[in-house]
């Protein structure tokens, strides 16, 4: 028991390791914020492309389907390895000389955009066709109907599942350690292998939990608010 506490919950080790883990964790936060912003924008664009009408748009639609299928199915760790290890070797100007941080954010964005595209798409499809019809009947173009009528309603509905995906993204910033980004996990690992003490992992874990709890509670709050609102309207 004493050895267990000493290995994972050592106050002495905590004082030593905390500054480094905290430092690394700020990199996690930076990756997370950047990736989430990119995901929000790209996923929306791809969801819209998947819904484009007309025969002429089919190559775009097909491309969007291939992309979402491919990146929802590929483990993030593989994508991270491919970008961080593969791209630098290609010698392409502007792509091959980026930092591990950039490759990491790119990997997170590629994988999570595929998930969030599906979330947006479900939201867009949940808006009844009569809404679009009403908008078009007033003379709004396809794009205007989408922008002013369909998307605002769709986005509101998908906020809870979207935030849920972002909780996953936040945790997965730890996987980006394999790309060579010095983030919280790496700092804990360095400390662990030097001192055979794993308090650093616990510190990193607690930091991740503290980061996701507010988001989870906020999601609950939104869901509950919607339920109350819908019940009030039904009554």
């Amino acid at each position: 028991m004493h050895r267990f506490l000493e290995a994972f919950f050592s106050p002495h080790a905590f004082r030593q390791v905390f500054p480094d883990v905290w430092n690394g964790f700020q990199t996690n936060i930076r990756m997370m914020v950047l990736a989430e912003l990119l995901v929000l924008a790209f996923a929306l664009a791809i969801a819209v492309i998947r819904g484009l009408p007309g025969r002429g748009a089919w190559p775009l639609r097909a491309l969007a389907v291939v992309y979402t299928d491919a990146f929802r199915g590929t483990p993030l760790i593989l994508v991270a390895y491919m970008l961080a290890l593969g791209l630098p070797g290609l010698g392409i100007h502007g792509i091959s000389n980026r930092s591990p941080f950039v490759y990491g954010v790119a990997a997170l964005t590629l994988v999570y955009t595929a998930y969030v595209t599906e979330v947006y798409r479900a939201g867009i499809e949940s808006v009844h066709g009569s809404q679009r019809m009403a908008a078009r009947s007033l003379g709004l173009s396809y794009g205007q109907a989408l922008r002013y009528v369909v998307l605002p309603q769709a986005v509101r509905r998908v906020v809870p599942p979207l935030l849920n995906d972002f909780v996953g993204l936040q945790k997965d910033t730890a996987i980006i350690s394999v790309a060579g980004v010095t983030e919280a996990t790496v700092q804990a690992q360095n400390f662990g292998s030097s001192y055979f003490n794993y308090t650093g992992y616990v510190v990193a874990g607690v930091l991740f939990i503290f980061l996701t709890i507010p988001l989870a509670r906020f999601t609950d709050h939104l869901v509950r608010e919607r339920e109350l609102r819908e019940r009030a309207l039904a009554g």
Partner: peptide
């Protein structure tokens, strides 16, 4: 069609107001 629909108003059975 967008120009045409400016000149023709339609009102639906289910109102179809924009709820947001």
């Amino acid at each position: 069609v967008n120009a045409l629909r400016r000149n023709i108003g339609i009102v639906f059975q289910a109102y179809n107001l924009f709820p947001h």
